[in-house]
């Protein structure tokens, strides 16, 4: 199998892109796709500071590496959720990665900010672990980015993540979520701009990129992800992709062309939370402050 670009020995075939690539040209393609997404969706200007949310996994570490390679001022944020065993290993992977490259990594502890780890919160609060995790992570990432004066918050969501999220939103015809699913969401007030530069790159390409570039990431998945709906959605899409290559990329690119047709059911009005001052759509304290209240109440009980 020969590389479609240079004719040397290829190591990977990307059926969805109609390419066979050698290690050098796989790396070039990944970095070019990231630069292209940043340009197309006006994600970052050269002088802007970007905070990369890192988990120790392949996508976020590769994203951080690529942003620095492309010349952006990127720092990392790791949120220690306090998931027994797993958090220590994912923090270690993130710290080793940053240390080896001389990158700046900030670590925020959920236990310190909220008064409970994710495991503790799940016991105290009613709600699914993944939903609670999403709530606290989104809050802490935005708060840290806002307070640190970063112009953008970057996450490692890739093509497979975005296609699975899209499928989940379509299956529920959730217009509000469909209207908000986009590779770059502009900032508003204290809400920092959110960007997903890996949006058109598959998980397979990202894993290959890490192996070629010597990025040592945590292979392990979050223990709470077992049985998660997102995994089932990815499974369905992978079956379809196997039969009909380019299903995922066509699904996502097609959606981006018609996304403007979706509108949230009601315009969201943001106001400052009376507790922490961060923006919230709720009348009264934001969800994080309400969870914090429940934790302190539960701890006192």
């Amino acid at each position: 199998m020969k590389c479609s670009v240079c004719g040397r020995e290829a190591v990977i075939k990307l059926r969805h892109a109609g390419l066979r690539l050698c290690p050098e040209h796989l790396v070039a393609r990944v970095e070019k796709e990231v630069a292209g997404a940043i340009r197309r969706f006006r994600m970052l200007a050269p002088q802007e500071r970007v905070l990369v949310a890192v988990s120790g996994g392949k996508d976020s570490l590769a994203l951080w590496h690529i942003l620095v390679e492309l010349g952006y001022r990127a720092e990392g944020l790791y949120i220690d959720l306090g998931i027994a065993g797993y958090s220590a290993r994912s923090r270690e992977a993130s710290q080793v990665f940053a240390r080896e490259r001389g990158f700046t990594l900030h670590v925020v502890s959920l236990e310190k900010e909220l008064g409970a780890t994710l495991d503790g919160l799940t016991r105290l609060a009613r709600g699914k672990t993944c939903s609670l995790c999403g709530t606290v992570k989104r809050y802490l990432m935005n708060k840290f980015a806002w307070e640190g004066g970063y112009q953008a918050l970057a996450t490692g969501h890739n093509l497979d993540d975005e296609a699975a999220t899209l499928l989940g939103n379509v299956l529920r015809w959730d217009e509000g979520y469909l209207a908000r699913q986009y590779p770059a969401l502009p900032g508003e007030g204290k809400l920092v701009k959110k960007i997903k530069p890996l949006v058109f790159l598959s998980e397979r390409e990202m894993a290959a990129y890490c192996l070629i570039k010597g990025i040592r990431y945590l292979y392990e998945d979050c223990p709470h992800a077992q049985g998660a709906r997102s995994i089932a959605l990815k499974g369905v899409l992978n079956e379809l992709e196997d039969r009909y290559p380019a299903t995922k990329i066509s699904f996502l690119r097609g959606f981006l062309k018609v996304r403007d047709r979706f509108r949230p059911p009601e315009p969201v009005v943001l106001q400052d939370c009376p507790g922490c001052g961060m923006p919230t759509a709720a009348d009264g304290p934001c969800r994080f402050c309400r969870l914090k209240g429940r934790v302190s109440h539960g701890a006192a009980a």
Partner: peptide
Amino acid sequence: LVDVISGG
């Protein structure tokens, strides 16, 4: 064999 599909 390394799994490339991540969870969550």
